[in-house]
Nucleic acid binder design. Sequence first.
RNA 1: GCGGAUAUGGUGGAACUGGUAGACACGCUAGAUUUAGGAUCUAGUGCCGAAAGGCGUGUGGGUUCGACUCCCUCUAUCCGCACCA
Length: 924
Amino acid sequence: MNYNFKKIEAKWKEKWEQSKLFKTNISTQKKFYVLDMFPYPSGAGLHVGHPLGYIASDIYSRYKKLKGFNVLHPMGFDSFGLPAEQYAIATGKHPEKTTKENSEKYKSQLKNIGLSFDWDRELKTSDYKYYKWTQWIFTKLYNSYYCNIDNKAVPIEELIKEFEKNGNNSIDSPCDVNTPNFDAKDWNNWSEEKQQKMLLKYRLAYLANTMVNWCEDLSTVLANDEVKDGLSVRGGHIVTQKKMNQWVLRITAYADRLLEDLNKIDWPNSLKEQQRNWIGKSSGLNISFNTDKNLNIPVFTTRPETIFGVSFLVLSPEHELINKLCTQNQKEKIEKYQLNCSKKSELDRISNINSISGEFTGSYAIHPFSNEKIPIWISEYVLSNYGSGAIMAVPAHDARDFKFAKKFKIKINQVIKNKTIVKEEPYLEKEGKLINSFFLDNLTVSQATKKIINLVSEKNIGSISINYRLRDAVFSRQRYWGEPFPIYYKKNVPYLIPENELPLILPSIDTYLPTKNGEPPLARAKNWKYKNEYKFEYSTMPGWAGSSWYFIRYLDPNNNDKFVGDKELNYWENVDLYVGGAEHATGHLLYSRFWTKFLHDLSLIPFDEPFKKIINQGMILGESSFVYRINGENTFVSYNLKENYKTTQIHVDITLVEKNILNIEGFKKSRPEYNNAKFICENTKYICGKSVEKMSKSFFNVVNPDKIIEQFGADSLRMYEMFLGPLTQYKPWNTDGITGVFSFIKRFWNLFHVNQTFSISEEAASDEENEILHETIHKIQKDIESFSFNTCVSSFMISVNKLKKINCNKRDILEPLIILLSPFAPFICEELWDKLNPGQSVFNAGFPNYHDKYISKSAINYPIAINGKKRLNLIISDEVSKKDLEDLVLANKKVVQLTAGKMIEKIIIIPGKIINIVAINQNQ
RNA sequence: GCGGAUAUGGUGGAACUGGUAGACACGCUAGAUUUAGGAUCUAGUGCCGAAAGGCGUGUGGGUUCGACUCCCUCUAUCCGCACCA
């Protein structure tokens, strides 16, 4: 019988689906939770790069199952999002419809690959049965504040009780910067409206004015990557910065815990490092500078010891004191500068390092220790939302301050001794002794830092302060295709929709555009009011809302009474292995940790980290092909002749290229403008150029897995994806190479067949055969556990090649080998297992154990090296003593020949590894 | 600018804690076989050289009996973040 993968794969796909082989339930076994990052179902479907991580996690899941674990391995879709909405705007099709079509397509592609997902647990974020609970979590955030004393989130009722008793005087909790002090009397006298406004300043979900990229012509808000050089990418409309009242989540309250707890999870270091940098904790000192206008300017510095090096202050262009500091003759310039900055997006403002700009306010600060006059400037390199929005500039010891001082010819005071000439370049190290610093002179940096901190607090002009780079997370989107907020407004004050009235269903609207007066699309919904009276919130939640907790919902996806059942939660707990791309480092992975910690604080879940271990898979890159068109002509010149002309490089669809040779007829037909194209060829062939880049529709280099499966089968696709290289690395796809694993699979099949007939021997295995088997078991187990799947495939090839050579078809050997291979190539293994053990599934078998006695060998093929360079091999029994070994080696003819005329200085014997003879020339 | 990774044949890659560099494949060369298929099998294939031998893991140095592996220098490519005071 020939290996007919089409028949085999179709058969088992159906059988597994019918028998619900991959359905999981709570049991008494040990659990293991394997999760893939949530895909967004795009209209283009899967390409060959997408399933890389899914195949890896599938192999690991199946391995864990064979090892006796109860494995949870679910899949679903992050189905809210911008592309579906934009498609809806363009075509009028409801995003729900396209989302459904796209996820069905994804699902069928994933099933073709033979991934062992429990599809009964499938979920979609856009399903109201799911987003009911996303809304519910929002109500919990809204109804909580963060207590710094307990260091956790606490229900807002506790805060109200405290306000009623003592006002907010003894509250230690992050809140709005403009929160006034009040006592119980004030609180109890306030109207409900005023009380609600005060509470909003403390909630973990609160309203705040935040800057957005506003596009007047489109009357909508744009994302950073939709804006370039102050214009919208689509259409080139002017984009300005505008403040907008939006929902914000107080993630900064968790900054320290998010940072600290990185130490207790098994994530790649680079990922942890990215989160650390994103949170960006830095400790320093807040110091107040008085000014000639008698105003206090607080500045934040991490280098307080350089206080005597300050030669100017810089405020951010939005700083609230600028109006008061700005003198009459500087006013015009300052206002012009401020206006200029407001036109730039934050991204533009900070991306241009080399153009230094700023304006002098006309005012001076007074140095708190030397009483010197210090000019006050404004510049866009100081950000209003970090620290206090103002800095003390020390050009001798800070790179940006240095550039600024050079440009505006401000003096540069060196205060730390070093060989660097600070007139030419700044000295940035925190090493050396202080100079020009009065009472700090001759102290080291750390001594001076301590001393200045003490003095500043004694003088009552500043205090130690910890700053985070992390900002609170804006949670509103002016879009249609997202979760509606369970919020309505009464007298402009937000109120929650009661829990028992959730979900608040996303209403239908006629068109998905914002309204003419700039309200989000939901303002178009007809008769959409709470109790027919109160306006709902019109913005929707961002894409990351649904993906911040989906891993919890998988435990109990169909529960209509709770977001997850207790039994399920306590059995499955958090994710043991999470596989996905590193690009989510500071988005999804941080928000999920935040929500997990929050839910844990309210005792809703028993764990406070979502993902115990993460593996980042690398990307599979595509190989793009190019043709070269002579500028101004419809003539294409072959790759090696293109230097003779001025040409433009154009992507050509890789399906029209084989072994770098262009299918000219196909190319002509591909686009009307190529119909009459001419070609300058090399030996009648047109050679294309190529390069490796991201696999993308726009580069015409995508390879569809369905086509690969059609030609070689899913088992070959799975094994080839793993064989390409280490899971975590970036690597190019090359379809030609798949023939290697395809013929391996056929060779494996042929082990079970003699003259095309299924044939298996019941004879006992020989030592040689056992050796092959047990070495393979050992290697496969080790490599799966270290996620080295590429070397697993090599070992399978090696052992099958060896077994083929000795024509082994013994059950004792082949049966365990099927189990070993089944996580990688499930279809063929199930088929062969079924022939050996009719009616049983290989996935209910146990992973075989290896025996050391077959792995250790008594004779060693010793490599013999002379001066570290291997020269020959000698087979020597491991019972030979060291002394005998030396004699044996020195007596060898080849050794004698190679060491002739040299003196043998010593012999190094590393047992079981190598023998090295150190020989030196005698005449030297 | 800062941070992180990576660099090994024509190509993808292997080499466990310093111990045989190039496993396993693709490609290529030669041959066998065949119902001409993107089939199967055999042998060869790092580079230079007729051979002996020499040279080889991005560059230059160092430690070591021995370095792809450890240390220093430089270079290139990719990725991430955006002036974080």
